[in-house]
Design a protein around this nucleic acid. Sequence first.
DNA 1: AGGATTTGACCCTC
DNA 2: GAGGGTCAAATCCT
Length: 298
Amino acid sequence: MDMEQKILITELTRGKDLAKQLSNNLNPSSSSLETHQHLIQKIISSYEKALSMLHCDASLKPNTTPRTEVSYQPCKDINKKRKTMPQRTEHVKVGWTPEDGYCWRKYGQKDILGANFPRAYYRCTHRHAQGCLATKQVQKSDSDPTIFEVTYRGRHTCNQNSHLALASNSSKDNKIGKELHVKTEESIIFPSFSFAHESIGLEIMEDDLFLDMGSFSPSFRSPATSESNYLSKSPCHMMNEFGHGQSHNVQAPESELTADIISTPTSVNNSPFGDFDFSLAKEDLDTNFLFDYLDTCS
DNA sequence: AGGATTTGACCCTC
DNA sequence: GAGGGTCAAATCCT
């Protein structure tokens, strides 16, 4: 782990500790307003340092045409329904079901009122084995059938390293990419993934700022042949398929990206995987994920 | 044979 | 009661 990463961890850890202090100090009888403000200032400063190191600035990549766009916004009525687990929604601008590196098992599909396409329900394959409660819903967008709206619920608590395995396997046969790459250039620290000739656009909305590795290790499966089952195949199969060198030629012009994408903050360029780039807003980074991931890769 | 998908029924919330 | 989410038996696939 290089010095920059250590500093980053230090700053984020400090921010967390300060937040804890502030939380303890929020007892009105125990501290003053000045104390609160001081702690808040320190927290902000700490996070600003860390984020500046992450340097999520699109201008850093002036020659890059961002093919992957990630943005966040609150999901307004997410908690009105039964589930209160955090959600995020990705809009995937590609004609195929997005695959996210985790293994999902489809457990249902429903026609949704007012929607042209059914919604498919997936849960983590390791739900029973490891008690992983992560689920996702996949639905084609009404406005643009080439967009899949993927809503994630809950975190993966399973010990699932398929996203890493994907890169590892692909490096063996040299079909998809060379290796998982942690990009530290320009202080961006995040893995990049790519598949030859593929480009997608993502829109992610979430009401909290967690980040699952699974959402950012995308691969894609072949176009389904029927409308009714276009969401059906287990992503695990696709991992194998990609491992055997399938490649798809899809181009998603930026002009087709949905108009409600809020921001297009960064694009990580020069990915060792080729054309597929992932970009992140700085808010995207879940430090636990980041450090776990860095540990994995170091 | 075992695991994944399909699909109608059921459950829960509004 | 409507609509969305989940269950589970039947079916399909490897």
